[in-house]
Design a protein around this nucleic acid. Structure first.
Lengths: 134, 134
DNA sequence: TCGAACGTTCACATGGATGTGAAGGTCAAC
DNA sequence: GTTGACCTTCACATCCATGTGAACGTTCGA
């Protein structure tokens, strides 16, 4: 039985950090930083180079989205496992503290969405007015 | 004709920084910081104390919301004038660069809203699953 | 009139996400 | 076998929102 995939994303693709950086629009430096923070993992080739598989692209994009949404890495680290697909695997992670964290974060995100929406709509309305009779 | 309100929020209320801090849940230090960054203004009493009127409470809350939504102060500073009510006063500010900035920012906010919504929904879905058969 | 609670400015510290550069190893191509 | 593009680690720099504290003036009530 041959190994195909593991959480580090080894053994399948042979994407190195440069390609991942390019495909995600993320500086190499940051990919290493995310790894250091435990958000992503990479296994190493014989020469020490990091190797990633395809799935990492989406994962990095998701991380960037969450960072951009204002979540700190330590929170992202906590919630990422729950967002993985297939999701079924990860039920074991669902400790009560974890669930509490998720609920808090979900509500914070909802608040943020409301605030952002409100303000964006205000900006949009302003722009329409200006375009109208500016 | 007596002066009632100006952009600095003078002459009406006699709220000082401590009360504003308490009512907005914002550290005094930060209120001074926002002033330093040009997000809010205050006029001074004879003794040098900052004075604010009621409107500042909402304004500060709005600023905090935007900060929390991930906008940096320098952007907030640009978009705040457009969000003031009554809005009509501010048409003079509508330079082309300003409009461009606003359009960019509006679109960025829309992106953020989408990303946030997607991730929040994923979290919510996970929570539902866990609550269901965890 | 004294002290507590508030205000002021100045200035340095911190933490998180990044930028940047040095010093060096690996590898493919010419 | 040397060049150039890639990788490695290490480490210091930057930006921004905050924390914190010193040193000092003001207000107010006991």
């Amino acid at each position: 039985m041959d190994v195909k995939v593991n959480t580090a994303g080894c053994d399948m693709g042979h994407m190195r950090i440069g390609e991942l950086a390019e495909r995600t629009g993320t500086a190499r430096r940051l990919l290493r930083y995310y790894e250091e923070q435990g958000l992503i993992a990479a296994c190493r080739a014989a020469n020490g180079y990091r190797e990633y598989d395809e799935r990492m692209v989406d994962r990095v994009l998701q991380i960037r989205g969450l960072l951009d949404a204002g979540l700190p890495t330590r929170i992202i680290k906590q919630i990422l496992p729950c967002l993985d697909s297939p999701r079924v695997i990860h039920f074991s992670d669902a400790t009560p503290e974890m669930i509490a964290t998720l609920e808090v974060e979900r509500d914070r995100m909802t608040q943020r969405i409301l605030c952002l929406t409100r303000n964006r709509d205000a900006i949009a309305a302003y722009l329409e007015e200006v375009r109208g009779d500016g």
